[in-house]
Design a binder for these strands. Structure first.
Length: 273
DNA sequence: GTAAACCTGGCA
DNA sequence: TGCCAGGTTTAC
């Protein structure tokens, strides 16, 4: 589910209802996610106040008032959702973490497939973000020359490169398909064969698509919900993702589906070279 | 590089 | 019943 726009949407929806709240308790109902939930997590956050929310790549950050960073990754099927006091009692299947706040509301991490992650960072160990590339919306870090600079270092496809979190952090399968359509570049093209001008176009398209997607509060392809249970709206605006056989919005040709790097890819053979 | 692995659920 | 899914890591 959540790529950068979805995680940012979750963050924005949670911020007004969780910042300033104090954690009363944490019920870890299932600790076996992609990695085990850190032992002692409940003890370390209970009694602490939530100072801020943040996001890095596809990770949601909850900053505690003692500087401890509480980090969530949604994997493919994770949700982080806030429930007002009255609604807090009903527990659903796959509710792995239930956080009780001091206004009797709850923050619940639910993840059927358990590909998600819950982490704590206090600055004493190597951060999960240590090897991560720039944010796609960071003009200073992610620009045409930066992308072009990888051309001589790799023989990978442009799609594979854009999905690599060490090169640019936060893009996933949906948005890379959309970006490459807007930039007019086929997903199977090798980065080394992509021109400098095309690198610029790809960076521009990235900005356009990601900003649009955030504006529309992310894509609910099957079941994405934000932090207060709302669906996103960007799925209705996908130009190619999931649209095999439908007409290209530009030229009307039939959208094709192929597999690139084991992931479904969609493109228009008329508009993308 | 490429495939398989980790899981569950939904759909044809 | 089999295949597919927004992600990431690990093993040939």
């Amino acid at each position: 589910m959540p790529e950068l726009p979805e995680v940012e949407t979750i963050r924005r929806s949670l911020e007004p209802v969780v910042v300033g709240r104090t954690v009363c308790s944490v019920d870890v109902r299932c600790a076996s996610l992609r990695k085990p939930v850190p032992p002692g997590l409940a003890q370390r956050v209970t009694g602490r106040r939530i100072a801020a929310t943040g996001r890095r790549a596809k990770y949601l950050l909850i900053e505690m008032d003692d500087g401890l960073m509480w980090i969530f990754h949604m994997g493919m099927s994770g949700r982080l959702q806030h429930f007002p006091a009255a609604a807090g009692e009903a527990r659903a299947k796959h509710d792995h973490l239930v956080v009780l706040l001091d206004d009797d509301s709850t923050l619940v991490f639910n993840d059927p497939r358990r590909f998600g992650l819950v982490l704590l960072e206090d600055g004493t160990t190597k951060s999960v973000f240590a090897d991560y590339g720039p944010e796609p919306l960071d003009r200073a870090g992610f620009h045409g020359d930066y992308l072009a600079g990888f051309r001589s270092r790799t023989n990978r496809t442009i799609k594979d490169v854009l999905m690599d979190q060490r090169i640019v952090a936060g893009l996933g399968n949906i948005y890379v398909n959309e970006i490459l359509f807007l930039a007019g570049v086929r997903p199977r093209r090798r980065l080394r064969r992509v021109t400098g001008a095309e690198c610029e176009r790809i960076v521009d398209a990235t900005r356009t698509i990601i900003e649009e997607a955030i504006e529309h509060r992310g894509s609910s392809v099957s079941d994405f919900l934000d932090g207060i249970g709302r669906r996103g709206g960007y799925q209705w605006r996908h130009r190619v993702y999931g649209r095999e056989g439908e007409p290209c919005p530009n030229c009307g040709a039939s959208i094709r589906a192929i597999v690139v790097g084991q992931r479904s890819s969609f493109y228009c053979s008329g508009c993308q070279r």
